[in-house]
Write a protein that binds this DNA or RNA. Structure first.
Lengths: 220, 220
DNA sequence: GCAAAAGTGTTGACGCTACACCCATGG
DNA sequence: CCATGGGTGTAGCGTCAACACTTTTGC
């Protein structure tokens, strides 16, 4: 094994990803069970030579969970010198990820023994400062959605009804908003999202026990 | 000199600070002239053992420029493997800083030969990817201000008139806004900022060539 | 008295909230 | 034919952008 040496001290740099989805109309996040300390944690790992932080996050997600994710964005750095209980100081670059629905085969790998979705309000005690990271990520998700409702779309599958789109919003947002009202929500979709070309009618319909609903898709 | 060695490769981690102020009613940023490559750059430097990223930024600003800054916030990481032309990969954590007015004694130190304020629209070609960092910081400053106008206050001295407060806003914001109108701006101050207790009348006045203006201060 | 900056009152247009209402389907 | 979820029309209220206006000072 090669050893790296340097005239200067360097911290370690890791990415950690808080990956959100909606299951059973509730907000969920993805956790992995680490083999090194046998605790649940958010997926992530160390930066390797020559990659960007985002590439690192994408790679770690794929390795640890087998997931390709349509939305991934840095939101905060965690640099408290005592945040990692192991010897070396670790700077963690935290990402928010969004995945459409929980239907996917989760595969554990060499570093993790288990992978699963957890309801956000049933998160167990996690390794390191990962509980804090989750709380900050959830706050950030809420405020991002408030600034820009386009963030809804990564949560959704290819085709969806307007009711599903609205239910997704209501799972995530915590503030009161007139968009929680059906009429206003639909006006918003047509004036704002459709006007910007974000959502288009596919022509298909979803049949249920009652009047069928038109299906829409995010445009590209 | 001690050498550090590790089983794993580590990147270097640095903080870089885009420090804004207003001079002559124009937005300015602080630049330092680096001794190592004789080029202008934004202040910053490497993380040292046991400090947080913010502590690092505060320390670097003090060392390179002698400035204590009332507002300092991380806004983005720059991790392109080729961003630093020197051999080692450097992750840069970029900060936005805000300083009230440009009146301060700037002192150069061992790493930098010169320090000065530059009008934002007269920034020269900078070292590394620092021009890109400045552009991103300026965008971010604008959007932060749009979300939360409290960001105006770090630009101001202890006492200021409402006209000065408004001029500061107009130096920074690029979008059209009804707050550019005097009447609406003052309503905003009294209903929003004063209601939140952010700004209070000091009782003092500033004399000029015309009707004197009441002075206000940010509340703590 | 006049120029210039400080500071105030008010209205009309617009957007959004809230509510009531029709429509299509399965059982 | 009725229960249920899909889908639409619109009144009225509140907000605020925009403009006109008064006040206070120096010269």
């Amino acid at each position: 094994m090669a050893f790296f040496e340097s005239e200067f001290w360097h911290p370690s740099v890791a990415t950690d990803i808080v990956l959100f989805t909606i299951r059973n109309k509730k907000l969920c996040i993805l956790l992995v069970k680490r083999k090194d300390n046998n605790r649940w944690a958010i997926p992530g790992g160390f930066l390797t030579k020559g990659e960007t932080l985002k590439e690192c996050a994408v790679r770690e997600l794929r390795e640890e969970t087998g997931i390709e994710v349509p939305f991934l964005r840095q939101f905060e750095n965690f640099s408290n010198p005592n945040r990692d209980t192991r010897k070396h100081q670790v700077i963690s670059v935290a990402f928010i990820g969004i995945h459409p629905s929980g239907k996917l085969k989760l595969k554990a790998d060499t570093d993790v023994s288990d992978v699963d979705w957890f309801f956000y309000d049933k998160i167990p005690e996690l390794a390191f400062d990962h509980n804090e990271i989750c709380i900050k990520a959830r706050d950030k998700l809420n405020s991002l959605l408030n600034e820009n409702a386009e963030l809804l779309f990564p949560f959704l599958d290819k085709e969806f009804t307007l009711t599903e789109l609205q239910e997704t919003l209501m799972c995530i947002t915590t503030q009161p908003s007139s968009l929680k009202e059906k009429r206003n929500f639909r006006k918003w979709v047509f004036e704002y999202a459709s006007g910007k070309g974000l959502v288009i009618e596919t022509g298909n319909i979803r049949k249920g026990n009652h009047r069928p609903a038109k299906l829409y898709s995010k445009n590209i």
